[in-house]
Amino acid sequence: MIKFFRKIRQKLLSEGNTGKYLKYAVGEILLVMVGILLALQMNNWNEERKNYEGETIALMELRNEFERNYNSLLGVLDQKKKAQEGLYNYLSLLSDDSKTTSQKAKIERGPVAIVSWDSGNAVLNSLLSTGNIEYIKNDSLKYLLHDWNREIDSFDEHAIIYKDIVYELLNYEKVKLPIRMVKEGKWNYTNHSNLEIQEFREAIVDDFRYHNLLINCVNGLDIQIRVGDDFKEKFGQIINLLDTEIQKR
């Protein structure tokens, strides 16, 4: 192709036709420019296609990850709600003046639900660390994703505070009761007779200190549940935005 254009230029120069040569030169320059622009456009198109494919993959992987984490969170919150209800009912029975101390001592405390939520954010963290999060064009979605680890830290912080509250209750029970270990919803006693165990338990069921520790656990669970419900809403926002973007593919 280059030889072909060179022959045309040489022929025009040999003919001494300056006007035709200039027109040809301008045309050749324009042709080269058009070729360059077409090449750039093709390169841009390929780049956009790769970005589009990268965004699609990121959206799908994020959708799967957020759905897994959301379902896991629902399970944790369900346990905490059941524990809150159980502890509240237990506390209500201990506060019932119609029951004798002996009757109260036969009632088992329910679980305290210190179960933690483990969020697996490998996909999101990889996108953030590599900068591939920029593949996502939806600014609202991108903002929520950039802020997501802060939301997780806030939720985890309340869980840590609650654990400290629960450990205070468990330490109280370990001191007051002849137990080897306190497990969820059950006191495991060392070698003592049923009568001795009953006496140990009677010593705490009317103790205001014990009641206050139980109240702290109920309130701690209430805070976690309310924070968790807000967290669920933000989960829903992200999942809905992901679904909207995926449906556009």
Score class of each variant (00 low, 15 high):
V115F: 09
T190I: 15
Y90N: 04
L31Y: 10
N138R: 01
Q41W: 11
I179R: 07
V76W: 04
W187A: 11
L169F: 10
F5V: 05
D153K: 13
N44S: 12
I36T: 03
D207K: 02
S154T: 12
R49H: 08
G220C: 02
I107C: 04
T244E: 07
L241Q: 00
N212P: 00
F66K: 03
P178I: 03
N212I: 05
E48H: 07
W45D: 09
G185I: 02
C217H: 00
V182K: 11
Y162C: 01
R6D: 13
P111F: 08
E67I: 15
K232P: 01
N216V: 04
I239D: 05
S102N: 15
T56W: 01
G35Y: 06
T56F: 06
R209S: 12
N188H: 08
L195Y: 14
S126D: 10
I225N: 06
M1C: 05
G131L: 04
G16L: 03
N51P: 00
T101S: 12
N171Q: 14
L195W: 11
I204Q: 04
H211Y: 06
N216Y: 13
I223F: 07
E53I: 06
E53W: 01
N191R: 13
Y52I: 06
Q84D: 02
V32D: 10
N132A: 08
G19T: 12
I204K: 03
I238D: 03
R109F: 15
L93M: 11
S126H: 08
N121I: 08
I107A: 03
S126E: 11
R226E: 13
I215F: 08
M33I: 14
N121W: 11
K142W: 09
S129Y: 00
N89V: 11
S140E: 15
N89A: 13
